[in-house]
Each structure stands twice: as structure tokens, then as C-alpha cells.
């Protein structure tokens, strides 16, 4: 008896299929925006996430301001030392924090791989200053730092820049659902509060 694999592939090969023409990619791969960072801020805010703008030199003050009184904040490895401002109870993920530690954390601070202005999306690739996926999932509050040079305008620009190997997470606003009467409500399982610090 043929294996399921051989049988399925055999059924496919038995079908008379015509060659298809090349994929027409006439859509806009790169889109222009006068102010990509401004567009990102506007679109992220549309999802009811909070957006703050900061100059590079004032970033530590801004981080301190956002985290003031927030309690224990998880941080992935690779976060620049100047982000780890004093006065915050930091939980570094090095060695890796247990699930119960993360459940007990009050928030998480991370960077990102890039951000997509047009859709108001932040992409994490588990790389520098982002860490394991679970870090930005369990705590109920997520503060994400985005630098202006990480902002692209369109989805195709983002897909091109990303490395398919690493686990990727696209985040567009806080966790939400439209499951009740197709009406959007923020805050289900993921962080219910997303704050974005736009630098530069």
C-alpha cells in the first residue's frame, strides 16, 4: 500500500494542470509617505495603543517616565544599558525567566526588528533587545521602543527586510477581539496595554 505522502502527491500529479503565467506584481512594493514616523504614530494610535515621541537623547528619561510605578519589568538580553534606568525593578531574562516569574511580572520593555507605518505594525524577530516570544506575551503591559530608522512604509518593504528563519511576531495594537457582534474590543490574552516610544 502506498504511503499517504505518495498517494497525495500521486493524486496531484494525475491532474491535468496548465502552466500558469508569471505572477503579476503590479502592486506598489514601495510606498511613499511624507512623514513615515508620523504615519506610524497615527496608525498605531488608531488601534488604541499609546504612542509617545522622543528625541534620542531623552530616551532614558522617557522610559523612566513610562515605567514609573509600574513594578517589575522584564527585559530581554541585549537591551542597551541606558534603557535600564534606575528606579525600576528589572527582571532580566538572563538566565531565562520561568513562566511563573513572567506571570508575576508587571510589564516588559523591548525593542523591535522594524515597524510598518502604513499598518501601524511592530515586528519582533527575537533578535537584539527583543528576546524570546514569551517575554512580550505574558506580561500585561508592553513598552516597545522603535527608532525612526526602523520604520518602513509598506508591508512589502517589511517582508523583504525580515529574516524568515527567526520566529517573527507582528504586533498591531494591543490584543483585541471582534468575536462579539463583530465589534472590536481591546484586551484579551496578549498584553492589554501596548505603549510605543518612537525615537527620532
Amino acid at each position: 500500500m502506498a504511503s499517504a505522502r505518495e498517494e497525495i502527491l500521486g493524486r496531484i500529479r494525475a491532474v491535468d494542470r496548465q502552466a500558469t503565467p508569471a505572477v503579476p506584481r503590479e502592486y506598489e512594493r514601495v510606498r511613499r509617505a511624507d512623514d513615515p514616523v508620523g504615519l506610524l504614530a497615527e496608525r498605531v494610535a488608531d488601534y488604541r495603543a499609546t504612542v509617545h515621541r522622543a528625541a534620542a537623547r531623552e530616551l532614558p528619561y522617557r522610559i523612566a517616565e513610562r515605567l514609573d510605578g509600574r513594578g517589575r519589568i522584564a527585559v530581554p538580553p541585549g537591551v542597551p544599558w541606558e534603557w535600564r534606568v534606575p528606579g525600576v525593578s528589572w527582571l532580566p531574562d538572563d538566565p531565562p525567566l520561568g513562566v511563573s516569574d513572567l506571570e508575576a511580572a508587571d510589564g516588559v520593555l523591548s525593542g523591535c526588528a522594524l515597524a510598518i507605518a502604513e499598518t501601524g505594525t511592530i515586528v519582533l524577530d527575537a533578535g537584539h533587545a527583543q528576546g524570546r516570544r514569551v517575554l512580550t506575551l505574558l506580561p500585561d503591559y508592553h513598552l516597545c521602543v522603535v527608532h525612526a530608522d526602523q520604520v518602513v512604509v509598506s508591508v512589502p518593504e517589511a517582508v523583504e527586510r525580515l529574516d524568515p528563519k527567526g520566529p517573527l511576531t507582528f504586533i498591531s495594537g494591543p490584543s483585541a477581539t471582534s468575536d462579539i457582534e463583530l465589534d472590536r474590543v481591546e484586551g484579551v490574552h496578549g498584553p492589554r496595554t501596548l505603549e510605543v516610544l518612537l525615537v527620532g
Binding site: 488601534y47 524570546r132 520566529p167 517573527l168 511576531t169 504586533i171 498591531s172 495594537g173 483585541a176
Partner: peptide
């Protein structure tokens, strides 16, 4: 589908990532 510019979360992975997931 949800009539959003982007849905809140999209996860992409390939195989197994040591130490993550």
C-alpha cells in the same frame, strides 16, 4: 477578514527555535 489594516497578531515560525517556543 476583520476589516483592519493589520490584525493584532501574526506569528511566523519555521521548525523549532532552540530556547524559544
Amino acid at each position: 477578514s476583520t476589516a483592519e489594516r493589520m490584525n493584532p497578531y501574526t506569528s511566523i515560525w519555521s521548525g523549532v527555535t532552540p530556547g524559544d517556543g
